[in-house]
Design a protein around this nucleic acid. Structure first.
Lengths: 187, 187
DNA sequence: CGCAACATACCAACCAAAAGGTATGTTGCA
DNA sequence: TGCAACATACCTTTTGGTTGGTATGTTGCG
């Protein structure tokens, strides 16, 4: 991004750039690398400029995760639209979205980002609210213990993926994914 | 702990106290609350005293997780000793240990501790090494996809427990646990 | 329209606090 | 006495955050 004097004023773009850069930095260097200084610099803005858009660092982090939840929600919605079978459709979509959204590239700082952000009560609340709301909405089709186990296994796979030491990939992610989806149909 | 002038010199005890206090602080306030100052203070020692036992903060964190892995390993070993059925015995023990070691009390900063510590490559390596070694050792009895799913579901349950917003407990942890164990027997 | 009045979007410099770490003492046990 | 086990005091860096100012729009009014 060019410096402010060279570009047209476009606060919405700056806001987006800040969020994008924050996400990139956090994924690459973990939560310790997510400093307002670094984010502002990466976005071609000064710290003061950042604080104009986000009144505090917490607000920035909240914006980050609001984006993330929104994206996950959209992916799940899309996956559900293509699923003819009603029973377990949310669980299948959850599995698909979880496996598809695995951040590729270097994986270990990403884990720290996600879960350490959940130390922030406001972020934790965001996630919990979203999840319980979806669970409530699809209670009729996805409220079975066997499906809960599938979702938890997906979470576990997500965690395993994030925590894999250096290149060591998760053995057979695709096969695992299909197996979990099959579990929602045959039970 | 009394101050140094009032107590007998007992470096081993001080070391243990430091690790225990560090664990407590991290569980209560998350990784951000795990400062050498706070740990030393809580243990009734000054910062200089802490740095005498642990040459750096990273060393302290590594000691913390070495303890954790050791405890988990002991629990799994104990659970396996009481399990007559060979097939899936490691997976069952893993499930039992995972559910039994759920840190009670307020849970959200704990999640941050665990996973953010895994941003430290040395800690991540510790965990990965332990896990792959156990997997290799029990390859004959626990190398089936269905058992892998059970272990991942246990991880997911662990994550869900850590991430529950304020009091909201995981619905039916005990039932879930039994269900997972049953899955290792009936498949 | 044209221009003053105001609001928005930034920048540059600075600040207090807290962090990890070190250098140098002091104390107590063998 | 000598060394391990601490305490005290200090340093450096980095952090989130603030302050005052400036450039760029936007709006109301004669």
């Amino acid at each position: 991004m060019k410096t402010a004097s060279q570009r047209k004023k476009d606060p919405e773009l700056v806001r987006r750039t800040l969020l994008d850069c924050a996400m990139r930095l956090a994924l690459e260097h973990g939560p310790a690398g997510l400093t307002v200084q670094a984010v502002a610099e990466a976005a071609g803005v000064t710290k003061g400029g950042l604080f104009h858009h986000f009144p505090s660092k917490q607000a920035l982090v909240e914006g980050l995760f609001a984006d993330l939840v929104e994206k996950l929600d959209a992916d799940i919605e899309a996956a559900m639209a293509k699923d003819p079978q009603p029973r377990g459709s949310f669980t299948r979509a959850y599995v698909r979205a979880t496996f598809d959204d695995l951040p590729q590239g270097q994986g270990n700082p990403a884990a720290a980002l996600y879960v350490s952000a959940l130390a922030e009560p406001s972020v934790l609340r965001m996630w919990a609210d979203w999840f319980t709301a979806r669970l409530e909405r699809h209670r009729a089709t996805d409220d079975e213990p066997s499906l809960e186990i599938v979702r938890m296994a997906a979470d576990g796979a997500w965690l395993a993926h994030l925590m894999r030491a250096d290149g060591a990939a998760v053995p057979d992610a695709a096969g695992l994914r299909e197996r979990l989806i099959a579990m929602t149909l045959t039970d």
